[in-house]
């Protein structure tokens, strides 16, 4: 465990010593503040469009951070040959992967906390309320979704050689699941047979990231999600993380590093 945490620590250190995160955060803040300054029919209580915009930016930024950082981890270790001195220590490859995963996940968690604090402040500045539990549910579900994405990208970074192609593929897959995942079965029913089965298999095997996207509930002040279903969603997320990490570990164990 200590080993995994040490590896994770290096990942987090790298992230906050690079400037990507700050740039994304400041850009998000600037865009939101500019949008907030637009007066619509002289009514300064209009907030939901701003909440939606801010959450959209937070989602995009968090996905960018999660995917680009994770996709870089193992290839950079290979390219810079830091993998060699690292694996020459009593570290298993599975531990290394877990450390990388945990590092990226925690780093994204820190980023999310910053983003959601800003979001909460922005919303509270007009609504004068802090639905803390709702924000907690939204942020934690978001974080678990990022966990699945990170595990998936980590597996991808071992399968695809180039980090850029891995990032692109992951962006397309994640975006596709978020936008279409819920309807893949309906789409399948409109298709002829061999393709239909393929679509259905995809539908039943992909991680349904859209469960974790509860932005609509936050924007429109819906009541809390039932805690039982919330817990089930977290377990569902962990399940997929384990699946992807196991896959990654199996792939990594067979690869030679030199």
């Amino acid at each position: 465990m200590k080993t995994i945490l040490a590896v994770a620590g290096v990942v987090i250190k790298e992230l906050y010593r690079r400037k990507d995160f700050y740039v994304l955060f400041i850009v998000t803040m600037l865009i939101c503040l500019i949008m907030a300054s637009v007066r619509i029919f002289n009514d300064d209580k209009i907030i939901r469009y701003l909440k939606e915009l801010c959450l959209l930016l937070v989602w995009v930024s968090s996905l960018v951070i999660a995917i680009t950082t994770t996709a870089r981890q193992i290839p950079a270790e290979r390219e810079n040959r830091t993998l060699l001195p690292l694996l020459a220590k009593p570290v298993t490859r599975t531990q290394l992967l877990l450390g990388k995963f945990l590092g990226c996940w925690l780093a994204c968690g820190i980023a999310l906390v910053c983003f959601y604090l800003f979001f909460g402040a922005l919303a509270a500045s007009r609504e004068h309320q802090w639905p803390l539990l709702n924000y907690f549910q939204a942020a934690s579900l978001h974080w678990f979704m990022l966990g699945i994405v990170i595990a998936m990208v980590l597996l991808g970074s071992l399968v695809f050689a180039a980090p850029s192609s891995n990032s692109t593929i992951c962006f397309v897959v994640v975006g596709g699941i978020l936008l279409l995942g819920r309807h893949l079965d309906s789409v399948a029913l409109t298709l002829p047979e061999p393709v239909r089965s393929v679509f259905l298999i995809i539908y039943y095997s992909i991680p349904h990231l859209e469960f974790f996207d509860v932005r609509d509930l936050i924007i429109h002040d819906w009541p809390l999600i039932h805690w039982g279903y919330y817990g089930l969603a977290l377990i569902y997320g962990i399940g997929y993380m384990v699946v992807f990490l196991t896959g990654a570990s199996l792939v990594f164990r067979r690869q030679s590093v030199n």
Binding site: N80, R81, P85, K89
Partner: peptide
């Protein structure tokens, strides 16, 4: 064992002290 690879490169964003501390944790 201690191992020194040929053409050594390390985490460029860490200082030597942090690097050594990281590896010491692994042991």
């Amino acid at each position: 064992i201690g191992y020194l690879p040929e053409l050594t490169y390390y985490y460029k964003f860490l200082s030597a002290e942090e690097l050594l501390r990281f590896y010491s944790t692994l042991f």
